[in-house]
Amino acid sequence: MSTHVEVVPAAFDPPTCLQQFVERIGDEGAVVSFTGRARGHAKDGAGIEALVLESYRGVTLSSMQQIVADTHAKFPISASHVIHRAGRISPEESIVFVATASRHRRAAFEAADYLMDRLKTEAVFWKREEHANGSTWIEPTDADQSDAARWLGKESEAICPE
């Protein structure tokens, strides 16, 4: 199992992360990556000046490492790479980068999906949107919770070579 999990305080470059990941996965046949970016508008259409992600000491990283360990236990992937931004993030900057590698594609797709669903609801961050009139704390949405709940009790189906 090869993992890399990191919380970074400054902007990062997803293509560079992907290149670093690919360089350490050997001849695996499938690589899936996902990049989450900061939006410039809230759900009600109001402009967002910045997204602020507060982390806490080593607890945030530990929560991410646990999610990654669970992902490797659940899906037949050989490697993963998770970079998460903390601090003040401007619109269009990257918040999170996730990559997974496996022998066949289905496992890599599902593992990346699972990783993101868990990160979106369980990673130890407190998030607020800064806008012209102040700031608003953000909690996981119903959609985030139901996305994460999809995996409860679901066995990996990523064993078929595709």
Partner: peptide
């Protein structure tokens, strides 16, 4: 000890 209080997390 180092103590902290956590409200529900937002997730990433």
């Amino acid at each position: 000890d180092t103590a902290a209080l956590f409200p529900p997390v937002s997730g990433g």
